[in-house]
């Protein structure tokens, strides 16, 4: 059984629909079935919705845990995966997947793999591909134990289209887990505009901005274009941008139509986060910056000169 796992919700997110694509490919090649597992406050809604993606069987575990700890989610995912007899568990490589994948594998006696960007079946063996060395290489990997608990990088697979259908849903009682870990304070993230991972336009800045002030210009451009602001690891380390803006191997994976890379040199670990972008626009004063190697359009100019002109040009276009 190939199990797509997540936190549920009223809709299947784009990341979840990408998992459907992976699951279908595997199920077809291995001759197995696809099931859906949701653990969260709206588990049953999502489990019913899974039927519309041709998924016949689902388990919903309504978990309302106020602690904010991940352990209750992991333990209930493990219960659900056991109930479904999972041979493969697929999770999005998002905030939950990063912390739950390996631990879920350990609890199920399986093998873990993170950030899958491709999968194929050869002679009955499942071969997973994942970026390594900050995206400078791809590794083809086989896992030894079952289940394989795999997190899948967003943007690597097409999202499945919704059809019609009903899933048979088992609703299970959540297992209570107390870990003495409590979230006591949540800082609100960015309020306005789309989420970085879902934005059609992303305007990102790096060390070349020279300070936090440059991000105000980027925010202005992003707002005009209905996009989100991102940052490189270097800019986050400098304290110019909050960590939740970080794009790259260890930040957000983005897949916009246009990715503006402003003052970003293009370290591989950053490029790993933007491989899903349709087009990269590089703005950098150094013509040898590696970012130009992956850019569709490039401008060699100091951003302080170009950005105000670009904002004016966009305003004129939109007027």
């Amino acid at each position: 059984m190939i199990v797509i796992a997540g936190r549920g919700g009223q809709e299947l997110s784009r990341a979840q629909r990408e998992l459907v694509t992976v699951a279908r490919r595997l199920a077809g090649d291995l001759g197995s079935q696809v099931a859906y597992l949701a653990v969260g406050p709206e588990a049953e809604a999502a489990a019913r919705r899974a039927g519309a993606f041709g998924i016949g069987r689902a388990v919903a575990i309504e978990l309302n845990d106020a602690s904010g700890a991940v352990e209750p989610i992991i333990e209930n995912l493990a219960q659900g995966a056991r109930r479904l007899g999972a041979s493969v568990v697929l999770l999005a490589a998002d905030h939950l997947g990063v912390q739950a994948g390996p631990r879920l594998a350990a609890r199920l006696g399986g093998s873990a793999l993170n950030d899958a960007v491709d999968v194929r079946v050869e002679d009955g063996r499942v071969i997973w591909t994942r970026p390594v060395f900050g995206g400078k290489a791809l590794a083809d990997v086989v896992l030894r134990r079952s289940p394989a608990v795999v997190t899948v990088r967003s943007g690597a697979f097409e999202a499945a289209e919704e059809g019609a259908g009903e899933a048979a849903v088992d609703v299970l009682e959540a297992v209570a887990v107390d870990t003495a870990v409590r979230v006591v304070q949540r800082e609100e993230g960015r309020q306005e505009g789309p989420r970085l991972e879902e934005a059609r336009v992303v305007v990102s800045g790096g060390r070349g901005l020279g300070g936090p002030e440059g991000f105000q210009r980027l925010a202005e451009l992003a707002e005009l274009l209905g996009g989100a602001v991102g940052a490189s690891l270097a800019a986050v380390d400098e304290g110019w941008a909050p960590p939740e803006w970080q794009v790259g191997q260890t930040g957000k994976m983005v897949a916009p139509d246009v990715y503006f890379a402003v003052g970003i040199s293009g370290a591989s670990q950053h490029l790993a986060g933007i491989s899903g972008a349709k087009a990269v626009v590089a703005i950098n004063k150094n013509p040898d910056a590696p970012i130009f190697k992956v850019a569709r359009l490039g401008v060699v100019m100091e951003y302080e000169k170009l950005l105000p002109a670009l904002i004016e040009a966009v305003k004129r276009e939109l007027a």
């Binding site: 905030h95 939950l96 870990v181 304070q185 949540r186 800082e187 609100e188 993230g189 909050p242 939740e244």
Partner: peptide, 11 residues
């Protein structure tokens, strides 16, 4: 780093 911004966790 929480899902949408910083969090403070006690443990």
């Amino acid at each position: 780093q929480g899902p949408d911004g910083r969090e403070v966790v006690e443990a």
